[in-house]
Design a protein around this nucleic acid. Sequence first.
DNA 1: TACATATGTAATAAAATTATTACACATGTA
DNA 2: TACATGTGTAATAATTTTATTACATATGTA
Lengths: 111, 111
Amino acid sequence: MSINGNELLQVFEALANPHRLRIVAALREQRKYVSELAREVRMSRPLLYLHLQRLEAAGLVTGNLELSDSGKAMKFYELADFEFHVTSETVAEATKTLQEPPSSKTNEEEE
Amino acid sequence: MSINGNELLQVFEALANPHRLRIVAALREQRKYVSELAREVRMSRPLLYLHLQRLEAAGLVTGNLELSDSGKAMKFYELADFEFHVTSETVAEATKTLQEPPSSKTNEEEE
DNA sequence: TACATATGTAATAAAATTATTACACATGTA
DNA sequence: TACATGTGTAATAATTTTATTACATATGTA
């Protein structure tokens, strides 16, 4: 069983942004909490949240809300283990199971 | 030597779209000319051109203008050979050589 | 209490991507 | 000549993504 088309698409979408590549690289050293990471990659927290959400939705990182020793809430993000082999073959295979969300003009008229 | 950060980003950007995944899959069987491919993936030619350009810019496909037997111009696109191993390690490695275009507020003020 | 540091989100603006429409030009065939 | 089929692109519209600003809430320490 290979990866689902929509999942693979989500992975590509998640990685198709320089900030998010940097976030992945930054998390490689060790897990980090959001504010800490924001300082490191020099990004506002709200924006970082957005990027983290995309990475998490794609399954590339996971977030965990924890309490520090002093009792303060900290949200830690860490990398997930992921490994994709990308060739025209694996892309074509995954694409078989690719489906657009059932919106738009799916089956209005054929010719 | 591994892949350059900006090149890898361009690959992800190219693959981060359902139409383009389908185009890759369609070209897997054999090379096709633009109008032919447009019919197959049910897309207007101008739009297909845009997507093909992105794929070509990323090095995933190549285009060739040829003359058919009858003398009509035909632009054939075919898949390039590509293979990427995507893990947090390869992403982090490539990210080292990632650079934003020298615009925006690169070095306005540090703190 | 005031301040620094956390999390979290809503509203809005800005920018980039995607999509459509309307062209121009060329060749082969009826 | 008229029509079908090909390439190619410019202008514009629509949509999505990215980014900013302004909040609210909570904890620990001076």
